[in-house]
Design a protein around this nucleic acid. Sequence first.
DNA 1: AAGTTATATCGTAAAATTACGATATATGAG
DNA 2: CTCATATATCGTAATTTTACGATATAACTT
Lengths: 112, 112
Amino acid sequence: MSDITTQKNVSDRERLVKMLKALGNPVRFQIIQFLAQRQVCITNDIVRATPLAQSTVSQHLKVLREAGLIKGDIEGPATCYCLDTDGFTWLKQNFQAWVPDVQVCCPPVERH
Amino acid sequence: MSDITTQKNVSDRERLVKMLKALGNPVRFQIIQFLAQRQVCITNDIVRATPLAQSTVSQHLKVLREAGLIKGDIEGPATCYCLDTDGFTWLKQNFQAWVPDVQVCCPPVERH
DNA sequence: AAGTTATATCGTAAAATTACGATATATGAG
DNA sequence: CTCATATATCGTAATTTTACGATATAACTT
């Protein structure tokens, strides 16, 4: 309990950090934007909206899935992706809770 | 303009993604938490609150600085760090704006 | 001036991420 | 059954990130 890596709410914090990490990549961030706009689409729609190889997109989708940001339902030969409602609700709440609201910062301090 | 990597607001999006990436690392996230709690402290306070080497912490601080999340003022021989007010205000606003608010997701769709 | 403290940067090793092509699997069409 | 389509996974190369020790710099102390 002496350093900042041993605290309470570890699993919540880890979940949040995992989500932020997943979003902190330009390709994945834009896949989320694309999915938010399209609501529902299959993998191939995302691949075609991208300059990347299908396997690369599939890998990014896996990261987003494992972060709890998207859900994929198998529909016949394709996989139908959409945003994970619960995941995003949780993210928005916890982002507000964990990421500091800064009011005043860097007051002039005297250090001796 | 045909794929999702060519859109408007690129620099805002890039700035947001850069911030999310910076936060999407457990060490850096906890440095932010630590700074939010302590308001102001020098590098060595953070190093001592951490199991990591000084150079490693310094490197993480650089990432946070370059993402616009913290500011460092040189005070004598030490550097005095605090959260970047403007950066966090911008982040919170743009997170709300860019990260989708999901209401309904995955309606049952018929695919032919 | 010499020693101490605080920190950033450099060089580098190890690990993780990102991207690709190839492949395996599964579904639907003919 | 065969072919086409859709996608996940595997193997792998290139790049980036993460971490460390060593070093350079800068400011106080004595």
